[in-house]
């Protein structure tokens, strides 16, 4: 056995190097005998296959980690435990590839969802902004209209109040006329009595006294009619004042409601509330920010 020592040591050296992880090591030429050739071939075949497996395992895993799933584990030339491990690595590669596909498709649908949401929110916020603008303009128009209506009603109230006051003055004047007419009636009666007492000389005067009485009677009747008319006017103007006051109050209430709408639409600096148009813009910006994050 002694003459083979050199060859055996050479084999041992190669095996130790391989065991230490140097898969470059191979058994050198040992001699030309059949046994020497056979041993060298067998050990080197073992090392070649181990080397191939290690290279494949490293490279296939690295390719999988890099997302190059087309690079498979080459099981060719591998038998038994080598082949089973190779198939195991291939399966994990398939699983990684499948997961990567799922992640990719999830990302795709997330992007698609983001696109949909974005266009929906954009359209919505544009519509809200447009509607809010329209509402704001209408509310401002209505508020202006209400102000001028209150002004008109107040002027009407003044006019009617003025009318009431002048009709009171008219009544006063007519009362005076009425009293003068009654006084005149008494005077004409006394004049008629004095004319009768004067006899024939007073006949002409009696005619005048009668005429005066008739005039006074007519004046009294007319005054009564005027007073009735003035009373009717006063009643009517009182009604008008009540109605105008009620209308003015209603318009003032309406004006308050309209201010509320305008504040909801345009915002309110006093209570620091945000208007509808501004809210629509905030919504758009917030959704945009969310989508930027979702797409990343």
């Amino acid at each position: 056995m002694g003459e083979n020592d050199e060859a055996l040591y050479a084999i041992a050296d190669t095996c130790r190097q391989a065991a230490a992880g140097n898969l470059e090591a191979r058994v050198p030429y040992l001699g030309e005998s059949k046994a020497e050739t056979e041993v060298r071939s067998a050990v080197n075949d073992l090392l070649d296959r181990t080397d191939a497996f290690v290279r494949e395992a490293g490279a296939a895993s690295a390719a999988g980690a890099a997302g190059h799933f087309y690079r498979r584990f080459l099981a060719g030339g591998m038998g038994g435990a080598y082949r089973r491990a190779a198939e195991e690595i291939s399966r994990s590669g398939d699983a990684m590839s499948h997961n990567a596909e799922q992640i990719a498709s999830a990302a795709e649908s997330r992007i698609a969802f983001a696109d949909q949401l974005e266009s929906a929110v954009l359209a919505l916020s544009e519509k809200i902004a447009a509607a809010a603008g329209e509402m704001g303009r209408s509310a401002n128009g209505l508020a202006g209209f209400a102000r001028s209506a209150v002004g008109d009603a107040e002027r009407g109230l003044e006019t009617v109040t003025e009318l009431r006051r002048s009709s009171g003055q008219i009544r006063h004047a007519v009362d005076l006329i009425n009293r003068v007419a009654m006084q005149t009636q008494l005077l004409s009666l006394n004049a008629s009595i004095e004319a009768a007492r004067a006899g024939a000389a007073g006949r002409g005067f009696s005619v005048v006294a009668n005429e005066v009485k008739t005039l006074a009677n007519e004046t009294g009747e007319s005054s009564g009619e005027i007073i009735d008319q003035v009373d009717a006017v006063q009643l009517a103007s009182e009604d008008a004042v009540r109605v105008l006051k009620a209308v003015t109050d209603r318009i003032r209430e309406m004006s308050g409601l309209i201010d509320g709408i305008a504040a909801a639409v345009d915002g309110d600096t006093v209570h620091e509330t945000t208007g509808l148009s501004e809210l629509a813009e905030v919504l758009r910006v917030e959704v945009q920010r969310f989508l930027t994050a979702a797409r990343a």
Binding site: E24, R26, S41, N44, D45, D48, A52, G76, G77, G79
Partner: peptide, 21 residues
């Protein structure tokens, strides 16, 4: 055959340093 592997090694210049059976 399917079960066989052809193996060679070269140095950095491409000179054969090992060839299997």
């Amino acid at each position: 055959s399917d079960g066989e592997l052809i193996v060679t090694k070269t140095d950095t210049r491409g000179i054969l340093t090992y060839a299997n059976d």
